[in-house]
Simulated scan of single mutants.
Amino acid sequence: MASELTPYLHVRDARAAIEWYVDVLGAEVVYAPIEMPDGRIGHVELAVDGARWMMSDEFPQLHAEAPRGDRGLPVTLHLTVPDVDGLCARVTAAGTTLDRGPEDAPPAGRVASFRDPFGHRWFLNQP
């Protein structure tokens, strides 16, 4: 069996994040949300063209906290997509500002980056 590394994101509002990732990134929910007794989402899984990640609401008591806007991020999510420009158009139409691009960056290809409304940084790549 091969090893696998899957990002696990924590956000302040998982329901809003699910909606944003589905509407803007074109994600699909591949594992339905598990609602905790207090109403928070304890686990959900999403994917864009098979690129999967897990997510939950914040659980500070478990050291699972969303990014804070007052500092940089230690992790960037790299997502390979077939159309960087098209996805950037949807991201900006949703009110999110791009940090970079879209631009050609040989030898990587067409690239762009942004921080989503939930604080996570995404780097888009179209080889």
Rank of each mutant, 00 (worst) to 15 (best):
R52V: 11
P37T: 12
A108I: 09
A108T: 14
M36T: 14
P127I: 03
Y31Q: 09
D99I: 06
Y21M: 08
M55R: 06
S56A: 14
G86D: 08
A105I: 00
V48I: 07
V24M: 05
R100V: 04
Y8I: 06
A112W: 02
A27C: 14
R90P: 01
R110N: 05
A32Q: 14
V11H: 09
Y21R: 05
P60G: 11
A16R: 15
H78N: 07
E58R: 07
M55S: 05
H10N: 14
W122Y: 05
E45D: 10
P74E: 04
S56R: 00
H63P: 00
L62W: 01
F114Y: 05
G101A: 05
Y8C: 13
A17W: 13
D38F: 14
Y8N: 10
H43D: 11
V44S: 02
W20M: 07
W20T: 09
A64F: 06
R90H: 00
R15G: 15
D83E: 04
F59Q: 04
D23C: 01
P82G: 01
V22Q: 14
V29P: 02
F59W: 08
A93F: 10
L9Y: 11
T96D: 06
R90C: 00
A66C: 12
P37N: 00
D13V: 06
C88S: 09
E19F: 08
L5F: 12
R100S: 07
P67I: 13
R115Y: 01
V81G: 00
G109V: 08
V84P: 11
D99R: 08
E65R: 09
T92Y: 09
G26K: 12
G26Q: 01
S3T: 11
D85N: 12
H78C: 04
E45W: 15
H10P: 02
W53R: 02
R68F: 04
L79W: 01
L25I: 15
A108C: 02
P106C: 03
R121I: 10
G109P: 08
V44Y: 03
E35N: 11
E45Q: 15
R68G: 13
D104A: 06
L98D: 02
G26M: 01
S56Q: 11
A66V: 08
W20Q: 04
E28W: 12
M54F: 15
H78S: 04
T80G: 05
L25T: 08
R110G: 10
D85E: 13
V84H: 09
L9F: 09
